[in-house]
Design a protein around this nucleic acid. Structure first.
Lengths: 207, 207
DNA sequence: CATCTTTTGAGAGTTACTGTCATTTGACAG
DNA sequence: CTGTCAAATGACAGTAACTCTCAAAAGATG
């Protein structure tokens, strides 16, 4: 491991008034939405209610979030994940790169946004629509891994092997996060991720 | 491998007139739907159009298929998959059981319903909504594998290790089928599945 | 043929989204 | 401070996938 900078996981503060207002609106929509979700559930909460609570029009809601699912599933971590993966030595086994990168990022994330992450993952475990939505191309972690894998190999098109690898890693990682949320956030997530990758690396020897 | 009966992959013929009619309606809806999909695409085809073409009311459509996605994603293979998996020796590594069971089933399937399988997988590769829908609990292969794993271990609740294993296997198997469809159905699917499981078993050694 | 049960169709309602257009609001030059 | 332009917003109309309810049609049964 090389010594690290504080990991640019968080985008920098906006400058103009316009940008600041947009950010506030976005946060307001998210906050009100989560509040309503916790009070009456995801399915029983309409976009109209969320918009009203956040004091914007439904039109505006959909300008900020393409779908109601995106409210929960979209994040801004993609660039950080890609960066962390690319920082790993290119000759390291990809599984190792992923394990180290993911553990580092998640640790970072837990310090700053633990509650939000927990709420979100909790929702994903409980709402079937969200669980499926995880695999929509817009927020699919598989394409992230695939992107890095392809770039690392220095080729244009990913091979079949790369796709399978990315799919398996994405599925396993998602399972770790879901397990963490399902367990009330009490388990050590780094340990979960570690165990998960150990299984992948060992070819599921014990099972 | 034990010698096999002709694999009860297909449910037996219905008896009463009522049952025969229901089956015909179901097939008619599916057939007209696929025809319309191929003519104008999945997204551009409405349930109303499908219902009209199949000469049933939209109400009836939703009595036969819970959602428009289900038209493509639902199948009747689950019992066959479970049976094939349970036939394997319980002390065999689970990956081996899955590989053998899946290859056997897919071979069987290709002989009888190759065209339909191809059309469906093709649609899944091309329509993002369907790709995500693959992970809805109703048609999620992961829960299939998980069911068998749990039963084989003779426990009530699946362990975390079982969940990760099922998730990885399901993701990898899906990738094999999708790759087969994406390649125009020309590749040998048994070979694809074989390569896929080899990757899982080797711990993705090459990557 | 009469009756009971299952299947169907009609219709009204909900909700997530899309597209358009006029209005508002912040950015910026003079 | 003012006028102008671009970006953001809201109002509104429309679409399509469902859901629910109820009455009519059709197969099952004695």
């Amino acid at each position: 491991m090389t010594p690290q900078q504080p990991a640019a996981a968080l985008p920098d503060a906006p400058t103009s008034l316009r940008e600041r207002k947009k950010l506030k609106t976005r946060q307001s929509i998210r906050r009100e939405a989560y509040r309503l979700f916790s009070e009456q559930g995801y399915e029983n909460t309409t976009v109209e209610q969320i918009s009203a609570a956040a004091e914007v029009s439904p039109s505006t809601f959909f300008r900020y979030f393409a779908t109601k699912e995106d409210l929960v599933l979209s994040d801004e971590y993609d660039p950080a994940v890609i960066a962390a993966l690319l920082e790993r030595p290119a000759d390291e086994p990809f599984l190792t790169s992923c394990r180290e990168a993911m553990i580092g990022l998640i640790r970072e994330l837990l310090q700053h946004e633990r509650d939000e992450l927990y709420t979100r993952m909790r929702l994903v475990t409980e709402v079937p629509a969200l669980r499926a939505g995880l695999h929509r191309s817009s927020n699919n972690p598989q394409v992230l891994f695939l992107t890095v894998l392809t770039r690392r190999a220095g080729v244009e098109e990913p091979t079949y092997e790369m796709r399978v690898t990315s799919a398996a890693i994405a599925a396993a990682t998602a399972e770790a996060l879901l397990q963490w949320a399902a367990g009330g956030g009490r388990e050590d997530i780094a340990d979960l991720v570690d165990r998960t990758f150990a299984m992948l690396e060992s070819g599921f020897a014990g099972v």
